[in-house]
Amino acid sequence: MAETKQVIVKVKRQASPKDPARWEEFSLQWRPSMNVIICLRDIAENPVTRDGKKTTPISYDSNCLEEICGSCAMLINGKARMACSALVDQLEQPIRIEPLSKFPLVRDLTVDRQFMFESLKRVKAWIPIDGTYNLGEGPRISPEIQEKGYPLSNCISCGSCLEVCPQVNEHNQFVGAAIISQVRLFNMHPTGAMNKSERLKALMGPGGIQECANAQNCVHACPKNIPLTESIAEVNRDVWKQALLGWLTG
């Protein structure tokens, strides 16, 4: 085995939210087009650390493995990214793997991102249809609007934009770029626009759009290349216009 290439991986472990965190190092056999998920699977099959100590398999979230379900976001060499598309050959070794730091930890690399789904509720991120019975076609939408809306609707709720945002932390319940961008998407739709003012109002609440401080990390970190800063700017404009108008007209 001397001539086979090894991959050194360091994983931050934590048995539960109450337990202390610790690091474990693993040495794995390199294979072509290996990604971080394959590393974690190799460890699960043979959970022995580099110095020969037996340990438990690593708990982590994953599902589609093609960067569209949003499950496997974690910190890889200090950066928030999807583990499935993190190719070992493109990473500096030892590869450091940690859980996202801005969400409550469950175990090892598993975190609870329920906050994002609750935020979607808060901003009414849906189209208010009357019912699923047959009511004919939807409103016509120009290809131009579709081409703007489609990229926004690609958001996979992975949480990368929250993870990298300096304004998201234990003192600050900022909803984050993804949610603001969803507000833009639903306000853009002819039927969705019927809830526009409620959505904008929700974004003026605690943790609302005002918490954005324009560091613009979100747009760099987004694995789906969503124009998040553009969304924030546009929604910001809509919010203050509505606020000003509301203040002027009582």
Partner: peptide
């Protein structure tokens, strides 16, 4: 406002983050 943020420019040294 500063107290409510937490700079992370060492992890993400992007231009906007430096400005922040």
């Amino acid at each position: 406002i500063w107290l409510r943020g937490k700079s992370n420019v060492s992890d993400y040294p992007w231009a906007g983050n430096w400005l922040y």
